[in-house]
Amino acid sequence: MKKRKGMFALLVVVIGIIGLFFYSSFSKPAPFPTEEALKKDINQTFPEASVKTIQDIIHVDERHKVVPFISLNKDYGLSYWIWKKNKWRVAEVDNREEPMIWKIEDRKRPKYVYVWNIFHKNKVDSFTFYLLRQRDYITYDRQSLYIPPVQMTEKVLLHNKTYGVFSIPEDWATIKDYARPVQTDWLFVNGEDGDAFNFGWRPNAKPGVKEPIIFTNNGESFSNGDIILRFPERFEKGSRDLYE
């Protein structure tokens, strides 16, 4: 009898743990904190960020948000928020000048989101974003494989804002999906995702802006390590890597 009771207790505990796991991973996220609370939370988690003004709260998806801010030193920064373990947590704070790509792991397929907060808004009109793959030709085991190049572009207007986010279009995600495991037999992969694709970006100057726009990318970043951020490649008009 004692043994049975023990088994029963164990079963209850196991079911409880599984239930808790499902509850925490499928439960609806709580309402997003107010700007005041966000400011406090960032400054507590990453005191170096020294947030002065929250600019906006940008919805990426149900569990991910981006909060652009201006710091005491007048730097334009971004904070990345993830609903995890029943709490909205700030995963990273940075004040880089260039757009970054936030890779959000999802059950089905990863999401890729361009994010930026730049102080060049009076010089930059829009961004052009790229999904790129080099043309390639491989001979392998007496067979040959031709890989057409990919160059997909999207122009995103800044609308006089310093900040913004841009999720890659469905078509880009589809093309990227097709390259995932299907071609691993053939290709020597070089990308971070195990495929040959690269993300790129290009700033487009406002009419009348003649001087080149310099993005230094010497900002700071503070991360809890729970986030994947990447640098897309910067391109100029007439770059040798682009078809124009």
């Binding site: 057409p148 190049p149 990919v150 160059q151 997909m152 078509d171 589809t174 093309i175 078809y243």
Partner: peptide, 8 residues
Amino acid sequence: KLITIHPS
């Protein structure tokens, strides 16, 4: 679904 992958 047809997806254009190159600007040419």
